[in-house]
């Protein structure tokens, strides 16, 4: 193992002395920004789409919206995230003449992408809530959207919390593709250390460990949230 301790020393040298940790800091920050914002906007988009999809459809507007949502979900689930990133960064935004940083593009694409997946989770969640809840809300004179917001969606989110956790974990890990558009995430940072020190073994091990630690922390947070939501539950 003498070899390994040499490699470790070499890594530490590049990590601390040559200030590799600063790049790792930026990478970690970007990874978290992209994943967290992607999740939050994704929940927002997904909830809106799911609400449209469960709307009663005897009027024209909900039908048009529904068609649009099917197209949206179809596109974002039908193409890989990398392709979406490249399309947005190198095709769509230049055509529209919008100048944004690669991190901003990544946040946008991650939001839209996770929105498509979360919409299907949320639809299942909404459909798992007893229809009597919606009826009771409408019967006291609340509108469809007010009942959705105050009664149905909170219960739906509670039901799909474990799957939402899955989505968040997937997002964290998928941030490793944003280097395709030049955003510096964790992978870019450790790759930089590796290529400068001509030694990739330790940087990649440390990178993997950081991802694992992130995921463990998220898992704990989700458990805490589930516990919080369980307060209205019989199964305490």
């Amino acid at each position: 193992m003498g070899d390994f301790s040499q490699k470790w020393a070499r890594f530490l040298k590049y990590f601390i002395e040559y200030e590799g940790y600063k790049r790792v800091q930026t990478g970690l920050k970007n990874t978290l920004i992209i994943a967290v914002l992607g999740l939050l906007f994704g929940i927002l988009i997904g909830t809106l789409i799911a609400a449209v999809r469960v709307m009663p459809k005897y009027k024209r507007l909900p039908r048009i919206l529904n068609g649009f949502c099917s197209f949206y979900v179809g596109f974002f689930r039908g193409t890989p995230m990398v392709v979406q990133l490249l399309l947005f960064y190198y095709v769509l935004l230049p055509i529209l003449g919008i100048k944004v940083s690669s991190v901003q593009v990544s946040v946008l694409v991650f939001s839209l992408n996770s929105g498509a997946y979360i919409s299907e989770m949320m639809r299942a969640g909404i459909q798992s809530v007893d229809p009597g809840q919606m009826e009771a809300g409408r019967a006291v004179g609340l509108s469809f959207s007010a009942t959705m917001m105050m009664i149905v969606i909170p219960q739906a989110i509670k039901n799909i919390l474990p799957t939402l956790g899955n989505e968040f974990i997937a997002l964290i890990k998928e941030t490793s593709v944003v280097s395709f558009v030049g955003a510096s995430d964790l992978y870019v940072a450790f790759n930089y250390i590796g290529s400068n020190s001509y030694e990739f073994m330790v940087p990649y091990i440390v990178m993997a460990l950081i991802y694992i630690v992130l995921v463990v922390i998220i898992t704990i947070l989700i458990k805490l949230m589930e516990h919080y939501f369980a307060k209205s539950d019989r199964r305490k």
């Binding site: 009826e135 009771a136 809300g137 209205s232």
Partner: peptide
């Protein structure tokens, strides 16, 4: 026009 249901339908999250 209030309504009372067979299965109560109280809001579970409230």
């Amino acid at each position: 026009m209030g309504m009372v249901f067979q299965h109560f339908n109280l809001f579970n999250n409230k």
